[in-house]
Nucleic acid binder design. Sequence first.
DNA 1: GTTATGACTCCAG
DNA 2: ACTGGAGCCATAA
Length: 107
Amino acid sequence: MVERVLRAVECVPPGRVASYGLIGALVGAGPRQVGAVLSRYGDGVPWWRIVNASGELPAPLLARALPRWRREGIEPAPHGRGCRYGRFAADAERLRSAVEARLAELE
DNA sequence: GTTATGACTCCAG
DNA sequence: ACTGGAGCCATAA
């Protein structure tokens, strides 16, 4: 499961974000499992592109994510907790096929 | 086997 | 907008 989550996260393109819930749905896990995996094994994958369903990130993480967001063109939302999910979310359908292909490589 | 624990999500107040 | 509670389910102990 850990591998599946990490691979799926790698499929989120730069400048876009995906929710824990979406990633979970794509790999067959719950949102909290996605968070749990990133918490332990998150370094090495673009964890800053994974946000909650409202486009937000817990404060400590947001602080580390902002510089990378700026580099990728993801703008912080007015309320300052994250970004506008509707604006920066990766296309769900496209992400689904990308993840499907990536997971197939795992054999 | 059971229990506790989350980088979550949804919905009601 | 914020808070509380139920549901969630793989992992770790």
